[in-house]
Simulated assay, not measured.
Amino acid sequence: MKAIAAHIALILGLSSPALAVTCSDTGGQYEAWKPLMAAEAEAAGVGRRGIEALMATRYSKATIGADRNQKSFRYSLEKFLEVRGADAIVSIGRKRKAQNPDFYAALERQYGVPAGVLIAIHGMETGFGNFMGDTNVVSAIATLSYDCRRSDFFTPHLIAALKLVDQGTISPATVGAKHGELGHTQFLPGNALTYGVDGNGDGRVDLTDLVDAMASTANFLRQKGWRPGAGYQEGQPNFAVIEEWNAATVYQQAIALMGARIDG
């Protein structure tokens, strides 16, 4: 690691104090930004494998395009439910719950989160695992950290992604959604690092595994303050926890409404 840091400093001609990491609105300075970010990541405890993963990233135009064109959250709730296929999610969700009731009951006993909420999230995020993304996770998160639009929000997730690489939880080649989300329920790397749990007992956290993903989702909600047995519709105690899952009001409302229909 010292050799890597020395190499970075030599490339940049740095002397103490080090130059600050700066964002940009275009990809033109991305390659120059990477070694600066690598030095910051090393200072935050990222190891050799994580640094190498960062240095191998490419600016993701697909990620920037997706980040600039998030239109569905501007819809009314009725339109959002229609566009996202709420009726189909509820129908499939009820079948999934009926096919594996013991699994969801065990999650609720352990974490207090009812099946309907977990299943609604699963259906909303990836169509029950049918599409978990096609974008390199580390490149996506690095691009969003570099981009000025939400650099402060995504830089901690980049550090987390690099630590996940260090741990072997993900690899430099792992793919996810356009914003770097992982697995069945699309965890951002910082949340995966903090709330991910080994639900199936195989000794590792793998969010592309359904059991790990569902347990991790339930753990996230419980750690964010979920109150077992309390309601989760708007105005009820656990709706505030659903707000922690996604910042868009229509998304929060959709999870609550679909969850109730699945559990009903």
Rank of each mutant, 00 (worst) to 15 (best):
K2M: 08
A3C: 08
A6C: 04
H7V: 05
T22G: 06
L36R: 15
A44Q: 11
G47C: 02
I51G: 04
A56Y: 08
Y59D: 00
S60T: 03
I64N: 03
I64M: 11
A66H: 15
R68V: 06
N69I: 03
Y75W: 13
L77N: 06
A86F: 02
D87H: 07
A88N: 13
I89P: 15
I92S: 10
K95W: 06
R96S: 06
A98P: 01
Q99F: 11
F103Y: 05
E108Y: 01
V117F: 01
L118T: 04
I119L: 04
I121G: 05
H122A: 14
E125G: 03
T126I: 10
G127A: 14
F131S: 12
M132T: 03
A140H: 01
A142H: 01
S145H: 08
D152S: 12
F153D: 11
L158N: 04
D166S: 05
D166A: 04
G168M: 06
T169S: 11
P172K: 00
A173W: 12
G180H: 02
T185A: 10
F187M: 10
D198N: 12
N200A: 02
S216W: 11
T217I: 11
W226D: 02
P228E: 14
Y232H: 06
Y251P: 04
R261H: 03
I262R: 00
